[in-house]
Computed example of a mutant assay.
Amino acid sequence: MKNTSSTTNVYDYPDYDYNSTYPDDDNDDAAPCSLRDTWTFVSNFAPLSYILVFILALVGNILVLCVIRRYRQSRHNPCSFSLTDTFLLHLAISDLLLAVTLPFFAVQWINEWIFGLSACKIAGALFSLNVYCGVLFLACISFDRYLAIVHAVNISWRRKSCHAQLACTVIWVVCLGLSTVDVFYRDVVVLYGRNQQVCQIVFSQESSQQWQIGMQLVSLFLGFVLPLLVMLYCYIRIFKALCHASTRRQKRRSLRLIISLVVVFVVSWAPYNVLRMTDSLKTLGVIANTCGLNKVLDVGILVTESMGLAHCALNPLLYGLVGVKFRHELAQMCKTVLGPQGCLGLVGWAQSRRSTRRPTGSFSSVDSENTSYFSVMA
């Protein structure tokens, strides 16, 4: 299935190379391995997981965007946001664009790719673009929290989200450059052994292995290793700072939140990247290429890919609803839309959560007004 052909290889997440053939476990010159069982699993699992992630991510991230828009309208200066607020806005946009591409690939595995070559290139590029952007914005959020809490960056500087806009622009441009691979090399091809068209990346025979390994290493570094290192460093320093300035209850709450952010990120993306690395080692000949290994990689990469995609549906919960001020703004927005009686439960929940929160003063001499409106630590 994936990356087993010398002429057709893919590096991006939703694609599986069904034009390839498997070597027999006992005889490399024998007939290709059967893909029937793997096909049955993919056709049943992929559409369900893609549509589920699409629905959850669509609802959650639209909700985040609506709350941010409501808050921004109350602040007439576009640079009045804190840096974290701006990163959260771009994270929600990125996750939403990623989710929009999933129904296209769900239809592909239910039937076949029916949207044409142009849509194939656009959907693939959007997918790759926003996978990279999403994880890098998470790293930016953790770094901003680190600056605010550990180093107590000057309030007037941090209030100007125009600095964050510049950082976001750089991230979008870099990731857009990486996604151009999809624009140039994506094609609609017919699957091996099946009269079914799929949208996938197709490299020439001369450059297939070099491109495959190169893009997998770039994806591993930018999509997992770099964000994880930034998050670990920043959150460890944040927790140490909170230990010197918080009560025992606040320390426990902060530790639970920090652990949840890191653990969810690792659980979402680590298994996928481990399997991708295994696939690269197989391509290089370090690991023997067998039917059993290929089937494990095909099924495993699909399942772990879905775990990674689910992260874009979890981000609104992890980086939005955990904030007290965010929940309060959400409750007020709900009250405005549905009326006082329609949102009593949500308003009461937000108020009760806020009333039980003790004043924390400042962390590392950071004024309470400097706390991000949508901050993880708010």
Results as ranks from 00 to 15, higher is better:
Tyr18Val: 01
Asn19Ala: 07
Asn19Ser: 09
Ser20Trp: 00
Ser20Asn: 09
Ser20Gly: 13
Thr21Gly: 04
Tyr22Asp: 03
Tyr22Gln: 04
Pro23Lys: 04
Asp24Ile: 05
Asp24Thr: 09
Asp24Tyr: 05
Asp24Gln: 11
Asp24Pro: 06
Asn27Lys: 14
Asp28Phe: 10
Asp28Glu: 14
Asp29His: 14
Asp29Trp: 14
Ala30Ser: 15
Ala31His: 09
Ala31Ile: 12
Ala31Asp: 12
Pro32Phe: 07
Pro32Met: 02
Pro32Thr: 07
Cys33Pro: 01
Ser34Phe: 06
Ser34His: 06
Ser34Lys: 06
Ser34Glu: 11
Arg36Asn: 14
Asp37His: 13
Asp37Leu: 12
Thr38Asn: 03
Thr38Asp: 10
Trp39Met: 12
Trp39Gly: 13
Trp39Ser: 06
Trp39Gln: 11
Trp39Leu: 10
Thr40Gly: 08
Phe41Ile: 11
Phe41Ala: 12
Phe41Ser: 07
Phe41Trp: 07
Phe41Thr: 08
Phe41Arg: 06
Val42Gly: 04
Val42Cys: 06
Asn44Gly: 08
Asn44Gln: 10
Phe45Asp: 00
Ala46His: 05
Leu48Ser: 00
Ser49Met: 07
Ser49Asp: 03
Ser49Gly: 04
Ser49Asn: 03
Tyr50Ser: 03
Tyr50Gln: 01
Ile51Lys: 00
Ile51Ala: 00
Leu52Asp: 03
Leu52Ser: 10
Leu52Lys: 05
Leu52Cys: 12
Phe54Cys: 02
Phe54Ser: 01
Phe54Pro: 01
Ile55Ala: 11
Ile55Phe: 14
Ile55Pro: 04
Leu56Cys: 15
Leu56Tyr: 12
Leu56Pro: 07
Ala57Tyr: 05
Ala57Leu: 10
Ala57Asn: 05
Ala57Phe: 07
Val59Asp: 13
Gly60Met: 07
Asn61Phe: 07
Ile62Leu: 12
Ile62Asn: 01
Ile62Glu: 05
Leu63Tyr: 11
Leu65Asp: 09
Cys66Met: 15
Cys66Tyr: 08
Cys66Ile: 08
Cys66His: 01
Cys66Thr: 05
Cys66Glu: 11
Val67Ile: 13
Val67Leu: 08
Ile68Gln: 05
Arg70Leu: 01
Arg70Met: 02
Tyr71Val: 02
Arg72Lys: 14
Arg72His: 08
Arg72Cys: 09
Arg72Leu: 13
Gln73Cys: 09
Gln73Arg: 13
Ser74Cys: 13
Arg75Asp: 09
Arg75Val: 13
Arg75Cys: 12
His76Val: 11
His76Cys: 06
Asn77Ala: 04
Asn77Thr: 08
Asn77Trp: 10
Cys79Tyr: 10
Cys79Asn: 12
Cys79Thr: 10
Cys79Trp: 09
Ser80Thr: 03
Phe81Met: 05
Phe81Arg: 02
Ser82Thr: 12
Ser82Val: 09
Leu83Phe: 14
Leu83Met: 14
Thr84Pro: 02
Thr84Asp: 12
Thr84Ile: 15
Asp85Ala: 06
Asp85Trp: 03
Asp85Pro: 04
Asp85Arg: 02
Thr86Phe: 08
Thr86Val: 13
Leu88Phe: 15
Leu89Phe: 11
His90Asn: 15
Leu91Pro: 01
Ala92Thr: 09
Ile93Tyr: 07
Ser94Phe: 01
Ser94Trp: 05
Ser94Tyr: 09
Leu96Met: 10
Leu96Asp: 05
Leu96Val: 07
Leu97Pro: 05
Leu97Ile: 15
Leu97Ser: 02
Val100Arg: 04
Val100Ser: 05
Val100Glu: 09
Thr101Ser: 12
Thr101Leu: 03
Leu102Ala: 00
Leu102Ile: 03
